[in-house]
Amino acid sequence: MFPRPVWAALAVVAFCGACAPAAPPVPVIPPAKAAFDYQLGGAYPPPAGVQVVSRDHSAPAAPGLYNICYVNAFQAQPGTEEEWDELVLRDANGEPIIDEDWNEALLDVRTPAKRERVAAKVNGWVDDCAARGYQAIEPDNYDSYTRSHDLLTAEDAQAFIRLLSAHAHEKGLAVAQKNTAELAGRHEANGLDFAVAEECGEQDGCDEYTSAFGDHVLVVEYTDAGLTHACDRWGGSLSIVRRDRDVTPAGSPGYVRETC
């Protein structure tokens, strides 16, 4: 016969074997019209009054704020193509497909097997985001299919982002839709909870996001004209910030941050 402590432990194990697994934490989206800062080029102390900040996944979260963790999910950072190897999207001649604006190779998410492999690496960053205390992720370049010379499709992009959003939600993280207004109407099916929209004021297109996400849209502008138009049209309801295009840290040459 087992000693009493062992018997009691076995009874607990037997009982809990029928218990349902603990539910994952419920993701929380950023508050609407919150003061926002976009710090992808390097972390710095947020300006007074800021409630929401987006930073690269390599940076620590800002204490006491709502933190969004940026991950370059659909393209390779410059100089990292070898790390991705055959997961880089290539043309018929074997040449990588490059986003010329940022000198970033597109990642190949055309097949379920490749999507799973790319997601495994990106989701490792997502795990780091959760461990660092972030509340959400911002997977960038969702629209890479529009630069793929027709090698990628919108369906490929959506199938891939669903892998990321499902994993992030399991970790208790909300997921931003980055740009890609043409897919905003599919955000619920793709597990996307709020939007980060660059230059929708400049392009007079913020309504494409608000029609899907309501007031849960964070707007980033890079010109005076874009900021002015965004503030005139949506300043009463959306979070809006103007940054310099390189999103440099405060104190750096070229640093710009303005709000409505």
Rank of each mutant, 00 (worst) to 15 (best):
Ala157Asn: 10
Gln135Trp: 05
His57Asn: 15
Lys33Val: 08
Glu170Pro: 07
Ala119Cys: 06
Leu173Asn: 03
Arg110Phe: 12
Ala157Arg: 04
Tyr44Met: 07
Tyr38Asn: 00
Ala131Asp: 12
Asn141Arg: 08
Asp85His: 11
Val126Thr: 14
Arg132Val: 05
Glu104His: 04
Ala76Leu: 07
Glu138Asn: 08
Ala113Gln: 15
Glu170Gln: 15
Lys33Tyr: 04
Asp143His: 05
His167Thr: 01
Asn72Glu: 09
Ala120Lys: 10
Tyr70Ala: 00
Ala48Ile: 08
Tyr66Pro: 01
Ile68Met: 10
Leu87Ser: 13
Arg147Met: 11
Ala157Gln: 08
Gly49Trp: 09
Ala130Pro: 01
Ile68Cys: 06
Val50Ile: 13
Glu138Gln: 11
Ile97Lys: 11
Leu65Asn: 03
Ile68Val: 14
Pro112Thr: 02
Arg162Tyr: 06
Glu116Phe: 06
Arg110Glu: 05
Ala62Gln: 15
Val71His: 00
Leu65Ser: 01
Glu100Gly: 10
Ala34Thr: 08
Pro45Ser: 14
Gln135Ala: 14
Val109Lys: 09
Asp127Pro: 02
Pro46Trp: 11
Leu152Arg: 04
Lys171Met: 13
Val52Cys: 09
Ala119Leu: 02
Val50Trp: 01
Tyr44Arg: 11
Gln75Gly: 05
Leu40Met: 12
Asp127Val: 05
Arg110Cys: 09
Asn93Cys: 03
Cys129Gln: 07
Asp99Ile: 10
Pro46Phe: 14
Arg147Gln: 10
Gln158Tyr: 03
Tyr142Trp: 15
Gly172His: 08
Ser58Gly: 14
Ser148Val: 07
Asp56Gly: 13
Asn103Thr: 12
Leu106Tyr: 12
Cys69Met: 08
Ser144Arg: 12
Arg55Glu: 07
Thr80Ala: 11
Ser54Gly: 14
Ala157Thr: 13
Pro96Cys: 12
Pro78Arg: 10
Ala157Trp: 08
Ile161Gly: 02
Asn123Thr: 03
Phe160Ser: 00
Thr111Phe: 11
